[in-house]
Computed example of a mutant assay.
Amino acid sequence: MRGVTLSQPNIPGFCMSSSLQSGELERVHLKAQPRNGNSSKGDGFLGFLVVGEWGRKGAFNPSRVAFQMGKIGEKLKIDFVVSTGDNFYDNGLNSQHDPAFLQSLQIQEPANPLVQRFVTFYLLGNHDYRGDAAAQSSPFLRQIDSRWFCLRSFIVNAELAEIIFVDNTPLVKSYFLNSDNHTYDWHGIIPRKRYITNLLKDVECALRESIAKWKIVVGHHAIRSIGFHSDTEELVNYLLPILKANNVDFYINGHDHCLQHISDTDSRIEFLTSGAGSKAWRGDMKKQRREGLRFFYDGHLFNCPNLMPTLPFMMLTAPFCILGMRGNPFFTHPCS
């Protein structure tokens, strides 16, 4: 077992370390620490923000999204942020020294300095694979900004929940057959079949062995979506059966530039899409296959899953907030 303590910003309530065992996904451990000198974060509550499709060097209003993220994050006392991928448009980073890294991250800070307090866990999206995909996992980027943490696939163990980040862009066959004049960086992925087989085996093993109260899987592409990209066939065929067999509670993704909440009709899984951190796709909604749909919004937004030992609730944040629990009605209230 190899373990290392990761440098990080001053995040109340958690210390962070990572470990890696051969043949397994790397694990990041978030351990409860005392808050304010005498209280503990180990209070049975876990909150985090989810945002995606945001890295456009300030274009399409990411600073306004960041303002609300800081505001809601402070109010809910969240623990971290999740990015569902497509971190840098249109073609990822060209190297670990690409100025786009700071140009996209620093645009958030003048809008709300509170976002500086939260470590963010990043996945790669299809646009990130159009650049130097490995650059986003470089330790050099954490030296520039200690909030940044990105690997292809990894596990965040947050005591109450285990969150498995799955690099599912390589599962989508069309990127290998029809690149639409785009160049993708498949270093470390080829041969694709072996990469996918090993990845799915690691995910299945991690879920099977998990004893966490809540099991959450995060990927860039959707399993269920009524947005522009719709369901992802490869994930429905290969990943979804693993999630169902291992009683996963939430699958969270980006890719479609909207926010959605869809309940699976034959399992406990709740499908959440959070993919409008900057450019949103207005009116782009599939009319068919709307069973299980609980919420859809096609503007700028992010969502806020909050977990307790007995019940989860979600705050889906756009111009307003939506609170909901499985089997209960939704309630709205202003975010201002």
Rank of each mutant, 00 (worst) to 15 (best):
T183N: 15
Y184E: 05
D185L: 02
W186F: 11
I190C: 12
I190V: 15
I190S: 13
I190E: 13
R192S: 11
K193T: 14
K193A: 15
R194D: 15
R194Y: 12
T197G: 12
T197V: 12
N198Y: 09
N198I: 13
N198R: 13
L199P: 04
L199F: 06
L199G: 00
L200N: 07
K201N: 14
D202T: 14
V203L: 06
V203E: 01
E204R: 09
E204Q: 13
C205H: 14
L207T: 00
L207V: 04
L207Q: 02
L207P: 00
L207N: 00
R208T: 09
E209D: 14
E209V: 07
S210T: 01
S210F: 02
I211S: 02
I211M: 10
A212N: 02
K213F: 03
W214M: 03
V217N: 00
V218A: 07
G219E: 07
G219H: 07
G219K: 06
H220N: 13
H220R: 10
H220K: 14
H220T: 12
H221P: 12
H221C: 13
A222G: 09
A222M: 01
I223Q: 04
I223H: 00
S225C: 04
I226R: 10
I226S: 10
I226Q: 11
G227W: 02
G227K: 02
F228N: 08
H229I: 06
H229W: 05
H229A: 08
S230V: 06
D231L: 04
T232Y: 01
T232F: 06
T232W: 07
E233T: 13
E234H: 12
L235K: 02
V236C: 10
N237G: 09
L240T: 01
I242M: 13
I242Q: 12
L243W: 03
L243F: 10
L243A: 06
N246M: 05
N247F: 10
V248R: 00
D249R: 03
D249A: 09
D249I: 03
